[in-house]
Design a protein around this nucleic acid. Structure first.
Lengths: 138, 138
DNA sequence: CTGTATCCTTAGGGATACTG
DNA sequence: CAGTATCCCTAAGGATACAG
């Protein structure tokens, strides 16, 4: 198994360790592109993740430095998840994947305006998406 | 599970179905960036894939339209795998992933010249890599 | 609401022997 | 060489109940 290698040198190996499972990329999508921040919101995504799986995934993502678990300063019971720069830097990966899927799977759809802008001005779009995610954080 | 949805609309879902497992992306890497074309070559990659897994992955990749299984016209026993355009269009995805891993994992390395060119002239690099893969095919 | 704790099932994958 | 065919095993994931 790729993740058991001690001296791990291949970039693809590392990526597979961090988000090469069945759920992490979907959770990242919801946090980064759908603007979700709470457990309950993540639970509602149409793929139907189980509660124990979501919890374990969130923990691993925190360990891997993708998210930070925070509580609302007024109501301590309110938990939300903040994306790190490391996670935000996966936006281009998600967009590239989306572009590919939209081309090759007829049943796949993505916001056309998003895809158009990714083709025409990718840098600016990425910067905007990052900014949007950052300002959503607080 | 994401793959069981009938009306699958999210691009990330589709990508996960096609290459969201532990091996497909590594096999693609070897075919696309390392120039491997034969079963025996794919067997030697450092992650150590099992023979049955490699065989099943190659079959699924053919079903999914990523590769074409061919035999040498002179020596029919010689089998090799040819990448489709659908697979070649994943080069940007692999490069984006690599860029990210190199930044965030200190143990990860990639050819620096490759990464430099991906930053400075991505379109040209991608075109070159595709061409290289295509000419290798025959 | 945000998770733990269990229990259970299954698909994915490792090891190895074997085949045309 | 390019795989099949088995056997086995475990980690990943579903379902559900429950807790703070």
């Amino acid at each position: 198994m790729p993740s058991s290698k001690l001296n791990n040198k291949c970039p693809i190996d590392y990526a597979l360790e961090v988000f090469g499972d069945r759920w992490t990329l979907l959770v990242l999508r919801d946090l980064m592109l759908s603007g979700k921040r709470h457990y309950r919101e993540l639970m509602t995504s149409k793929e139907g993740i189980a509660t124990n799986i979501l919890a374990s995934r969130l923990q691993k993502m925190e360990t891997d430095g993708l998210i930070i678990r925070k509580q609302n300063s007024e109501d301590k019971r309110q938990i939300f998840y903040e994306l790190t720069e490391k996670a935000l830097d996966l936006i281009p990966v998600l967009l590239e994947i989306s572009r590919w899927s939209v081309i090759y799977d007829k049943d796949t759809a993505a916001p056309p305006e998003l895809m158009r802008r990714f083709n025409e001005e990718p840098q600016q779009l990425i910067a905007e998406l990052k900014d949007a995610a950052r300002t959503r954080q607080t």
